[in-house]
Design a protein around this nucleic acid. Structure first.
Length: 488
DNA sequence: ATAGGGTTAG
């Protein structure tokens, strides 16, 4: 823009305004400006430089942001507005109060606490921190970049005048994200006004914190407060379905079905987000028929929609179907990710498909460039352990880029129990004692390996070790082993 | 002229 004449600059502004509602067009414009070198910082300062304003940068940054958070995959990286900000400063344009909300949201999206802090300092230096939009964005950014809720609270408390609804919602979210659900609840009750976002923020916050029943109660409160008038929005429905999915038992399923009925009655469009939430809800409750129908009803499927289906099938004994659907997914051009491979490896481990599982684990790393998490290694250990291939299983654990946690050792321990590998079980027992001194279940498993092997003495010793470690004997902890199945 | 708050899969 530096090299543009005042005339072309006016044209640029006109173009930006004209195409503002269409972020893709703005990105094309951005590409054009980049390839023509117009956006590159020019070492020779010219008189025209003074005319450059924040406006074009704000428009482009906003377009990038909209496309990076858009459900239709990441067209542009979430850090794009931040890089534009650097270019903007280099070009000598002064950021204004319209610049920072977009930049702060970009900082949140990248999860950069450092960027949020730096932007806050910039706002203060330029005297823009008092602007209500900027302050609201600061509250939100501090809430999501891993900073303690104290920082968000500080900005909120120092806001000029009484905070508006958006600022209250941003703080409410920050409190929920910080895990301070009690404070969030109190703050919510004391808010002078609440909208659908307020209710949804609290509802999803409680559910994220594992308080699914509380979340459902909040949802019922919303329905009453709503006077059954306004239709429920997509975010509210997705959040409540997630709470229903994670609330075990008939209660969660019944509530989930009621929400589904609402959606059908009101002809709510089954978007990818909503469809995925529905597939997940039925899947978690083991209703595979409903789960498959919901999946089929989603027109615009995403990778996460497939993942919800595959996870449901893998967790409910449909290993063969997982493999079939996985192939369908790939045939339709979807790129499997960490969650997809987790479902696939889980299915392979449960079905005892050792070679297939090992093949896909290798392919996941080499071909799909998916970095394995602890859980993926856990599946491979499970896979090898069940087949009695202990040497390889231990090798996998030793070659992991991080220290194995209790779940990985637990998978191997289960295999030891299955194959009566007493030596290894003892070794694992020691490791588990160090990792999870309070988890009595593991000791019981180790002890049972001995007892099954006929090594009563060692079994008794294990009991003594448990007592020495100060592990409380839970009621009904001693278990009877029948045909390899533990019955408490 | 441009701007802020909630959302799915383990």
């Amino acid at each position: 823009m530096r090299r543009a004449s005042p005339y072309t600059y006016a044209v640029l502004e006109l173009l930006l305004r004209e195409h503002f509602p269409f972020p893709r067009r703005l990105l094309q414009l951005h590409a054009l400006l980049l390839t023509s070198g117009a956006l590159l910082p020019d070492p020779k300062r010219s008189a025209a430089a003074a005319a450059i304003t924040a406006f074009p940068y704000n428009c482009l940054a906003h377009a990038h942001l909209r496309l990076s958070v858009a459900p239709s995959s990441s067209v542009s990286p979430p850090s794009a507005p931040l890089r534009l900000f650097a270019a903007m400063l280099a070009a000598g344009a002064r950021p204004n109060r319209h610049s920072f909300p977009t930049l702060l949201k970009s900082a949140s999206a990248t999860g950069s606490a450092a960027a949020a802090g730096a932007l806050h300092a910039q706002c203060l230096r330029r005297g823009l921190a008092a602007d209500r939009f900027v302050a609201c964005s600061l509250v939100s950014a501090y809430g999501r970049t891993g900073h303690p809720s104290r920082d968000a609270r500080k900005v909120f408390d120092e806001m000029e005048g009484s905070p508006d609804l958006a600022a209250c919602n941003a703080l409410l979210d920050a409190l929920c994200l910080a895990g301070d659900l009690e404070t969030a609840g109190t703050f919510f009750e004391r808010m002078e006004a609440r909208d659908a976002v307020s209710w949804t923020t609290l509802l999803s916050g409680l559910s994220r914190g594992g308080r699914h029943r509380c979340a459902l109660e909040v949802f019922r409160g919303f329905l009453l407060d709503n006077n059954m008038g306004r239709r429920l929005g997509e975010a509210t429905l997705v959040s409540v379905l997630s709470a229903c999915a994670n609330l075990d038992g008939a209660e969660g399923l019944a509530a989930g079905m009621a929400v589904h009925a609402y959606m059908v009655r009101h002809e709510v469009e089954l978007t990818a987000f909503l469809g995925t939430a529905l597939v997940d809800m039925y899947g978690k409750h083991g209703r595979l028929g409903c789960c498959r129908s919901a999946f089929d009803a989603v027109h615009d499927k995403k990778v996460c929609t497939w993942n919800a289906l595959l996870s449901a099938l893998a967790n409910h004994g449909m290993e063969t179907e997982v493999l079939v659907k996985f192939e369908m997914m790939r045939a339709e051009g979807f790129l499997p990710n960490q969650i997809t491979f987790l479902a696939l490896l889980t299915a392979c481990a449960r079905a005892g498909l050792v070679e297939v599982g090992l093949y896909w684990f290798e392919s996941m790393v080499a071909e799909y460039r998916v970095t394995p998490l602890m859980v993926h290694y856990g599946c491979v250990v499970d896979l090898l352990g069940r087949a009695g291939r202990f040497v390889e299983a231990v090798q996998v654990i030793e070659r992991m880029p991080f220290a194995p946690d209790a779940s990985v050792w637990g998978a191997l321990l289960a295999a030891c129990k299955l194959h009566g590998n007493v030596e290894l079980a003892l070794e694992i027992g020691r490791k588990l004692m160090a990792l999870e001194p309070q988890q009595s279940g593991r000791y019981v498993t180790v002890r049972n390996v001995y007892l099954e092997d006929g090594n009563w003495q060692a079994g008794m010793r294990m009991g003594e070790v448990m007592q020495e470690a100060g592990i409380k004997k839970t009621v009904g902890q001693s278990s009877v082993v029948l045909h390899g199945t533990s019955i408490p």
